[in-house]
Design a binder for these strands. Sequence first.
RNA 1: GGCCGGAUGCCCGAGCGGACUAAGGGAGCGGAUUGCAAAUCCGUUUUUCGUGGGUUCGAAUCCCACUCCGGCCUCCA
Length: 536
Amino acid sequence: MPIRFYNTLTHKLEEFVPLSAGSHAADPFLGAHVRMYTCGPTVYDYAHIGNFRAFLFADVLRRYLELRGARVRQVMNMTDVGHMTDDQVADGAGRDKLELAVERMRESKKAGQALVENPNDPYQVAEFFIMAFLEDARALGLAVVADRDQAASETEKERIMPRPTRHIPEFIGQIQDLLARSHAYVGDDGVVYYDVGSFANYGRLSGNSIERLSHGAGGRTNQLAAKRHPADFFLWKPDPTHLMRWPSPWGEGYPGWHVECSAMALTILGPSLDIHTGGEDNIFPHHECEIAQAEGATGKCFARFWMHARHLMVNGEKMSKSKGNFFTIRDLTEQGYDPLVIRWALIRSRYRESLNFTLPSLREAAEAIASLRDLAEKTSLVVTGVDEAAGEGDFVPFGAAPAPHEPPLEKADAAMLDEFNRAMDDDLNTSAALAALFTWADPLSKQKKIAYPQARSALLALRRVDHVLGVIFAPLRPLPAALQHQIETLMEQRNQARREKDFARGDQFRARLAELGVEVTDTPSGSRWRPRLAPA
RNA sequence: GGCCGGAUGCCCGAGCGGACUAAGGGAGCGGAUUGCAAAUCCGUUUUUCGUGGGUUCGAAUCCCACUCCGGCCUCCA
């Protein structure tokens, strides 16, 4: 089955074929190597759910390609150089955003919250938010962070989630290449500018033309005397007073903000990528400029596919800081929502549709996940019992491709996977893929008893789809030991009350447990509890 | 001003010319079951796809107009 993605570059759906296909003629994805670059977060503040929607879209894309048998090398940057507040004039005016973060930090230190040792040090501030980002991203199951965590060395980690401040020499190298190939020039003001007129394809990605850019009513291009064209943007700006600055052939200063991704992607992944992803707001100017830089410097096609996630809305409105309607992951987990619920809510509909985020949608997500996790538990219990008895304790290969010794799936399970794949092949139609999953899961969930062969097959099928979804087998947040103990005591007290037929007292304990975020169910074999995925 | 998307049943969300009295998820209400719950079952909120025209044997799906919402046009994922 061919995979089709919407390619922003060509403005249409296209069949996706990896540049380095595998050796299986029948299926280009088996054993293929896919190189993918994901525009990551800026780290002068906590990332919010809107940012994570874009990262999770890339994660689902990557995991789906893995499910189809490809090996994906994904790189995601963490932008630790300060973009400028007045970047809209493309000339590096205004204040450095990292400088503003430093100021916020200094103020919060005054207020008694010492988040970093030295709030005047931009590197410490960036480091703080990088750590916060990694923590949130782990909780949400971003595979690229797992790659990083498992990397053997600091150098290897840096090649998976690079930070621009550690790659300045490469930026300078790229700028030199652009100067050498006459795509850039040094203006009378000493600033190095990209010459958009020298790159014929400038505007292809965003559907802009250079004329329109300079004449549109909203166009904020800025004619500086030093620039050849108003749309020219800066690559290096000498400024010996800037907060973060590095030596360069053009004087001490700082790089333009489009340089980082093109330079890091090229040095880490090579001149041609399979896929480059980001949020829709990256299309212009960021990705447009990246293409101009990378292709200007190498003369080769930079990325075959450009894929962009639409923006997340909150309660029907655009999310923005001025409206105060944005959530961070920690805002939501503190309210009692499990990160898996957030993951589900952000991936359950297709990346190219704008998604409206609401708290009720998190509750929906909790219910949906719970039913799938219940099915996973039900089938696991059967399989574990039998396989342990048969001395096959090491069963359950967790991963995308089926293990060689794996038995064939039952017909219904294979059919579900086919349908799941067919939906995902259609430009990652996750809604339709989930429909296939639930349609299949429903009768199994209702079945009172599942025999071993059926349970084993169903479990394998669930593990495959969960390689993409990442919410069925992922562990829940661990409970603090003290809380765990408290819960068990309350359970015992409740059981005691129920044994004495004092149901009123028993129900009080259940209410207490509910307040602790625990849900109790009574079964013929005794009472059980489990953490709620969303607050009551 | 220019260029793009979108409007689907109580809510969310697939479908994009016939299998649609619309997949799937969630919610409400009534009943069965339960000490009470949870889960499950039965019934219900649903001949309905923003509005008005048109094309067609046939339209949620194509065309035109209108209304509303959202995005981009050098801050943003």
